[in-house]
Design a protein around this nucleic acid. Sequence first.
DNA 1: TCAATTTCTTATCAATTGATAAACAGAAAC
DNA 2: GTTTCTGTTTATCAATTGATAAGAAATTGA
Lengths: 242, 242
Amino acid sequence: MANGEKTVKSKVEKVTNTPVRKRLPRHEREQMIVQEAISFFAEVGFEGQTRELARRLGITQPLIFRYFPTKDDLIERVYQEVYISRWNPWWEELLEDRSLPLKERLSTFYKAYVKAIFTYEWVRIFVYSGLKGVNINRRYLALIRDRILKRIMTEVRAEQNLPTPAEVPFSEREIELAWGLHGGIFYIAIRRWIYEFETSEDIEGVIEAQVASFANGTPAVVRQMMEVQTDKTGATLEATTT
Amino acid sequence: MANGEKTVKSKVEKVTNTPVRKRLPRHEREQMIVQEAISFFAEVGFEGQTRELARRLGITQPLIFRYFPTKDDLIERVYQEVYISRWNPWWEELLEDRSLPLKERLSTFYKAYVKAIFTYEWVRIFVYSGLKGVNINRRYLALIRDRILKRIMTEVRAEQNLPTPAEVPFSEREIELAWGLHGGIFYIAIRRWIYEFETSEDIEGVIEAQVASFANGTPAVVRQMMEVQTDKTGATLEATTT
DNA sequence: TCAATTTCTTATCAATTGATAAACAGAAAC
DNA sequence: GTTTCTGTTTATCAATTGATAAGAAATTGA
């Protein structure tokens, strides 16, 4: 714990290589703290100490409390900053654009998705807050399920000329097939940034392969599921999880 | 934080419903501490405090230090206890038993695998220690890759009468296909115990569906990969990641 | 029954850590 | 140039937390 370096250059100083201004406008300093807090908490978790965060910022620890009344307020702000405006509504349009082959839509979507959220900060903060039991995670996963996965499975059905979800609701297991694809891709990020285990550099190539495997293999499974469902009773057996 | 209950029944007392012996043989008390430490740290992470752990055990806090010199020693012991002897060598035999269809082997394997490690404690301790950067995680993932995933891809090739890995080493992307299946299944556990998000109760059914999708879709992708590889140069392009 | 042994508790330390208050200092206003 | 405003630091508190030491209480052996 004993740290040799006493005067540490702040991030800004290191990057711009110009002497850092001591007094900053309120908004600027606040933004500085939030940004550094994101990388700091992503690295060490939310138990990370305000003194160490201050040291990284090149400021004193009480100054943090001038901008955020409590540590929890700062953490809350970190959530806001990390999660907001990473969602792209275009993803949803793309997935249901039937002028393109499904395989291509999936491939394009996941490449874009990964570009948006595959960062050290996003992934680790997401897992840390998940372990903490923060609600924001569940809300995000519900978004993924309702806006992305259900759309994917709708398109898988459409490609096979199977009934729409309005006609025959999704079964739990059907949605889980989409979670399989999604989880398989997200697991790359987990291996890389949570376990720090080697992963392929060529994420786009990996996505293409995984999507191809999904697009090849899943439709037949879905078809079979629906045959079993309707064979038994002539109607739907299970309702989707809403 | 203020906790109303002052005298709490210990785990043992609750389970056996007989008054607990105050003084226990050294080995018994040690085992008690380790077991409770596992569920405690799984729940709150390794920053969890020894006082709270002692409270759950119905003992005083210094007693923990009678059995484990430091908190880190206790944590180390928790790793040992959680990870050891959950690996079943039979899994490896099963995967290469060509008297069974590959789809069935995969299905049986993942059902058994999931039965062994899909517990609240295992999954959360694994993720917590991953975030902490503990080496044991990387060793475990290397085991998965070398003993399980490479075997799976060997069998996928064999089923297609493609060259063996000895003849044509695995490409990175090929192994990533197996990580896709593995990650898709493990992601169920992450959703359930890290994010506490709803998952299907019927894990075996989900595994069957995901394995079916993999077994349907992946072989063609592998075949295509290998054609591209050999088409270009008449020989192997990439070496496997060892 | 008494002494020796071992388990367990009480009391306490020292370092850590979130948070506060008062003083300091740079910059704008007059 | 002096005053005023506010961004920043210094000094410090109180609660928390891993760890220790000494003694009480239970168990064993004779």
